[in-house]
Amino acid sequence: ETIMEVNLLKGPKGLGFSIAGGIGNQHIPGDNSIYITKIIEGGAAQKDGRLQIGDRLLAVNNTNLQDVRHEEAVASLKNTSDMVYLKVAKP
């Protein structure tokens, strides 16, 4: 597993990826991690090219996303300014 830091500039459609996982909404049984499950065509993440489906999202800005509820992860992604710092684990 490789840890990678990505600074992503939000586009008109936001960050351009979808997530799944978290406490109460496990993407993988027994694993509370938050995973990237979709990269949106023409979105910021696709244009940047570094994020991939299956990457594990560890942090957004200063918010640690390990062992959080799905709703908390979504809220932390929404409550960001235009430049967003992401910390991901690549499988």
Rank of each mutant, 00 (worst) to 15 (best):
D67W: 11
T80S: 13
D82C: 04
R69E: 10
K47V: 08
I40F: 12
A45V: 11
A73D: 00
A44H: 13
E5Y: 08
S76R: 08
N62F: 04
R69Y: 13
I40E: 14
G14C: 08
K87C: 05
A75T: 06
Q26A: 12
Q66S: 11
S18H: 05
E71Y: 05
L8T: 02
V68N: 05
L65S: 01
A75R: 15
N64Q: 08
H70L: 06
Q46A: 13
N25Q: 08
A20V: 14
L57F: 02
A75P: 01
G11T: 14
H27Q: 08
L9W: 04
P29M: 15
L65A: 02
V6Q: 02
E71W: 10
N32P: 07
N62M: 08
K47G: 08
Q66L: 06
S81Q: 15
P91K: 03
M4N: 08
A20L: 09
F17W: 01
A73W: 02
D48L: 04
D55L: 09
D48H: 13
N32C: 11
S33R: 08
L51A: 02
I28P: 06
G14I: 03
S81C: 05
G30K: 06
D55S: 10
K47E: 06
N64L: 13
L9G: 09
S81K: 12
E1W: 02
T37G: 05
Q46L: 05
A45D: 00
I28F: 14
N25V: 09
K38Y: 06
E1L: 06
D31V: 05
Q26H: 11
D55P: 00
K78D: 13
D31P: 02
K47I: 14
G11H: 12
P29I: 12
I53A: 11
E5R: 12
A89K: 07
V6F: 14
A73F: 03
K13F: 04
V6T: 05
G24Q: 13
I3H: 08
G21D: 02
G24V: 09
E5A: 07
K10G: 08
P29G: 12
I39D: 01
S81T: 13
G14N: 04
P91M: 05
G49H: 07
K87H: 02
Q52D: 10
A89L: 10
G14R: 03
P12L: 08
K90L: 03
G42A: 11
A44F: 05
T80E: 08
L9H: 11
A89Y: 12
L58F: 12
G16H: 00
V74Q: 05
Q46M: 10
V68Y: 06
D31C: 10
I39M: 14
I23N: 08
A20N: 11
A59H: 14
G43E: 11
D82I: 03
R50C: 06
E5N: 14
A20I: 09
I53T: 07
A73G: 07
E5W: 04
E41Q: 15
E71I: 11
D67H: 04
K38G: 14
D31T: 06
I39Q: 02
L9R: 10
E41M: 05
A89P: 01
K78F: 11
T37I: 12
G42H: 10
T37W: 05
Q26I: 06
G49F: 02
L77M: 14
A73C: 06
L57Y: 00
V84Q: 03
G16S: 01
R56T: 12
D82Y: 03
V6I: 14
L86A: 02
A75N: 12
Y85G: 11
N25S: 13
A75D: 13
H27Y: 11
V6W: 09
H70C: 13
Q46R: 13
R50L: 08
R69V: 12
K38M: 11
L86K: 00
N7S: 09
N7M: 03
G22I: 01
A45K: 00
Y85I: 08
N7A: 06
I36E: 00
G43Q: 08
G11W: 06
